[in-house]
Design a protein around this nucleic acid. Structure first.
Length: 571
DNA sequence: GCCGTTTTCGGCCCGACTGTTTTCAGTCG
């Protein structure tokens, strides 16, 4: 089966190639369609049975036809044609910072440069400076860009970028004595991966802010410094952008720099409908003489007839429409979480004891903690034999005597074997408070087989939670092929929960899949999969991802009180 | 290529910064 994400991928590629050819507007049309398809909560294959593909925003006659072809064949003839018209290496050239589609095409036409390697040689031999519009500095920049590209290993994970960004923000706040300073961009929207760090400051002393920023001890290179904007690169390669606006316009700027781009475009068209104009300095009457709103984000949204919405929702996935008709979700908050149901102790591959975890969770104000060491089948993690698993139960009894006010639930993260059976026999599983099932091996089964494997596990009467349901590892491993909709429908009728695993590399289910789960009506358990005490804090990012998936408190298992949870588990 | 209650053509978000230029094109977000 062809998944939505495969269709989107092809459409994105078409967009990139068209852009390279200098075609105007079409690339955006393809990208828009791809984005909307990517964020759909129903598979296209299913969707088109009851709807017209053209009902999808951004999909018209031409793209609908192409989507049909992709769904039928998994390929797109048009894309193959485009690929033949230009060398594939040009797409990589565009990845080099400072090289865009115009430059790449120009270099190809004038100097027959077809990939990054040839670009590097040409710059080193000073063959580029002879072109009109290029000079010595251009060659330096290109070489610098290539070296950065070689060093750069994709996007940063939210869980790791966030603390880095917070440290910069706090440093500048302290040194420039700022009150108005915030993270912006995809980091503020809590996307699971981050391209660079955006920080926004509101101050009427720009120089002081800029100086503080560029003097941050971790800064390796000041890439750019203008009157309102500076860009630095930290020693670890992270790029940080800072914008400074006057205090009066902070709200408008924060709204603008939080994005997303598509969210902002839609807001701007709302402004245009009212005869206004929206930019990072405020919401204005058309001739820019009169300010409608700009001091706070709330003012901006209110003036446009909207309720202010959490940054996590601002992806143009229906939040503006929901705000207009008063159906914005009341998103789950970190405080709603009453416990963590997926942690590994020293018994398997964790590095803290059950008691250490218990004290840490009690300190967080949790009501319960689920211990889930690995089962025997996962040897690399020193998975527990039945005997050692029973040892865990004894440990729990002892810890319970010392840590009062926190209920320890003994579970296990049990391997889902190739045939879908679980790694402990039923009479052992019966002794546990709950059971997490997970796949850690044999990832390369085809979609039908993998789906069947998971459906078999779901039909096991002892399974409580399906861990990291797609098996993806961000920047490392694609999700394994699986029919998630079938899995969710089965989980719903079996009363099994799906996990939102908050470990930064996993973040699985992702935001879009969480929303699909909500629509189908499957409960989500947000777990950290902690192997050490500090990792318990990943809950913050798990909740953020749940919020991006429009989840409310009642959609999440571990917002239940202990009493409610116990009754759920015994049902 | 898409879209629409200023609609079936003619728009398509908007501004900062840089380098190579004397007024702007390209990139980026």
């Amino acid at each position: 089966m062809v998944h939505n994400i495969d269709v989107a991928k092809i459409l994105y590629e078409v967009a990139d190639l068209l852009e390279l050819q200098g075609v105007g507007f079409k690339p955006n049309a393809y990208r828009n369609a791809a984005r909307n398809i990517e964020s759909m909560t129903k598979e296209l294959d299913e969707y088109r049975k009851t709807n017209n593909l053209r009902d999808i925003p951004g999909v018209g006659e031409a793209i609908a036809k192409k989507v049909e072809e992709i769904l039928a064949t998994g390929r797109l003839h048009y894309l193959d044609e485009l690929k033949q018209q230009l060398p594939a290496g040009l797409l990589q050239m565009v990845e080099v910072p400072e090289i865009g589609p115009k430059t790449a095409l120009h270099l190809y036409k004038e100097l027959k440069i077809t990939d990054v390697q040839e670009l590097k040689v040409a710059a080193e031999h000073h063959r580029i400076r002879s072109l009109k519009g290029f000079g010595e500095r251009s060659e330096e920049r290109i070489l610098h860009g290539i070296s950065l590209l070689e060093k750069r290993s994709g996007r940063m994970l939210l869980g790791y970028a966030y603390p880095v960004a917070e440290r910069v923000r706090e440093y500048v706040a302290e040194h420039a004595q700022l009150k108005l300073i915030s993270l912006g961009g995809s980091l503020r929207r809590m996307k699971d991966t981050i391209g660079d760090i955006d920080i926004l400051a509101g101050s009427n002393d720009v120089k002081k802010v800029m100086d503080s920023f560029t003097s941050y001890p971790e800064v390796d290179e000041v890439v750019e410094r203008g009157p309102t904007k500076a860009v630095v690169r930290l020693k670890d390669g992270t790029q940080v952008d800072l914008r400074v606006v006057e205090e009066e316009a902070y709200g408008a700027a924060l709204q603008y720099f939080t994005g997303s781009k598509d969210h902002n475009i839609k807001l701007r068209s709302l402004a245009i409908d009212k005869g206004w104009k929206l930019n990072e300095y405020g919401l204005f009457k058309k001739d820019l003489t009169e300010v409608v709103a700009r001091r706070t984000e709330e003012d901006i949204y209110k003036a446009l007839g909207l309720k202010i919405m959490p940054p996590e929702l601002r992806e143009d996935r229906g939040e503006i429409e929901a705000s207009l008709n008063g159906t914005l979700p009341n998103l789950i908050e970190l405080n709603d979480i009453k416990g963590d149901l997926h942690v590994h102790t020293v018994a398997s591959d964790g590095n803290a004891t059950m008691e250490e975890f218990a004290w840490a969770c009690k300190k967080k104000g949790y009501e319960y903690l689920g211990i889930t060491d690995h089962s025997y089948g996962l040897r690399v993690t020193d998975g527990l034999s039945v005997e050692r698993l029973r040892g865990n139960i004894d440990i729990a009894h002892n810890v319970a005597k010392r840590v009062d006010g926190l209920k320890i639930l003994i579970g296990a993260e049990v391997e889902i074997l190739e045939d879908g059976s679980l790694d402990y026999p039923g009479d052992v599983l019966r002794e546990l408070d709950f059971v997490i099932g997970a796949i850690h091996s044999k990832f390369n089964m085809d979609s039908d087989a993998m789906t069947k494997r998971v459906l078999t596990a779901i039909s096991n009467e002892f399974l409580t939670i399906l861990a990291h349901p797609t098996g993806r590892k961000l920047e490392q491993r694609e999700p394994y092929p699986i029919d998630l909709e079938k899995v969710m429908l089965a989980a719903k009728s079996a009363g099994v929960c799906l996990e939102l695993n908050a470990f930064p590399e996993r973040m699985d289910l992702n935001d879009v899949n969480c929303r699909m789960a909500k629509e189908i009506g499957v409960k989500i358990a947000i777990d950290t999969d902690s192997h050490s005490i500090p990792q318990l804090d990943y809950m913050f990012f798990g909740v953020a991802t749940a919020r991006r998936g429009w989840l409310e408190k009642e959609d999440v298992l571990n917002t239940l009180s202990l009493k409610e949870l116990v009754s759920f588990l015994s049902a």
